[in-house]
């Protein structure tokens, strides 16, 4: 397994936001985490990326335990993420945003930057090249010089993905990558996510509300409700799982006709 999350738990005061959730992600797969609002999905991501520290449990990337690492160390280790509410650096150009993602992979020291040493020049030109390549990859090659804040909404989402990819992750966590998108854009996003896996070999874990996307794209789905994992399996299993339907639709619905199909 590439990413193994074992019995992760987080409480805020008396509220158990994430309750002993276990998740295993195989290399080169696309995995989804779904659940009603407030199910603890984003908290789960925040723990994996080091923004919150879990109360219990372990997070292992290729066998290395990441609990207690700060977010930047997690990024170094190979987990990158996007945010539910886009967090781009609005005052920077698209290219610069992606270049920031390269930060962890560039090695320029203060000294190099001040004296423009060879290391600095090579680093910068490599970084820019890589950033441009990534922008081309997500289809923003022409917008490289635009300020991030000026980009349309869908492009901002894609730019955020490019920025995350720039850290050369092994696992990419996407927090609602299609939120607020229209069906066309969602379709594009789907293609992009597949490309990320197929072309770059990056494993993708996504939180998503768009059921159609989730069901068509993921090989494995984990369902959270009230912080607890209530089901996991392939799309077909999840669709027919009475517990999932109950979580989304309430007990009555589960017993009724909706559950039959």
């Amino acid at each position: 397994m590439l990413l193994e999350v074992n019995a992760l738990r987080k409480t805020f005061g008396g509220l158990v936001a994430v309750n002993d959730v276990t998740l295993e992600v195989a290399p080169r797969t696309i995995v989804s985490v779904i659940g009603p609002n407030g199910a603890g999905k984003t908290t789960f991501f925040n723990m994996i990326t080091g923004i919150y520290e879990p109360d219990q449990g372990s997070i292992k990337l290729e066998g290395r335990d990441l609990v207690g690492c700060s977010p930047d160390q997690v990024a170094h280790a190979g987990i990158a993420r996007t945010f539910q509410n886009i967090r781009l650096f609005g005052a920077m150009t698209a290219l610069e945003n992606v270049l920031v993602g390269r930060h962890a992979r560039l090695k320029t020291k203060l000294w190099d930057a001040v004296f423009h040493t060879k290391a600095y020049r090579e680093d910068e030109s490599n970084g820019r090249q890589a950033a441009q390549t990534l922008l081309d990859f997500v289809g923003l090659g022409k917008q490289a010089g635009e300020l991030a804040a000026n980009l349309p909404y869908g492009d901002q989402r894609r730019l955020e993905i490019a920025r995350a990819l720039a850290t050369t992750p092994k696992v990419l966590l996407l927090d609602e990558p299609t939120a607020g998108m229209n069906p066309n854009e969602t379709e594009d996003a789907k293609t992009l996510i597949r490309l990320i896996r197929d072309e770059l070999g990056v494993t993708v874990v996504l939180i998503e509300h768009d059921m159609r996307l989730v069901m068509t794209i993921s090989e494995h789905i984990t369902v959270l409700d009230y912080g607890t994992k209530i089901a996991e399996g392939g799309p077909r299993d999840i669709r027919n799982n009475p517990k999932v339907i109950e979580a989304y639709l309430g007990r009555g619905a589960a017993a009724g006709e909706y559950g039959k199909e």
């Binding site: 992979r105 490599n126 390549t133 490309l195 072309e199």
Partner: peptide, 26 residues
């Protein structure tokens, strides 16, 4: 229907992964 996006060949620097180095605990 949209044509599938052409994917350029990626720089070697981009796809190469870092050697595992020990992580200092926070």
């Amino acid at each position: 229907p949209r044509p599938p996006r052409a994917v350029p060949a990626l720089e070697p620097t981009l796809t190469s992964t870092l050697p595992a180095k020990p992580i200092k605990r926070k």
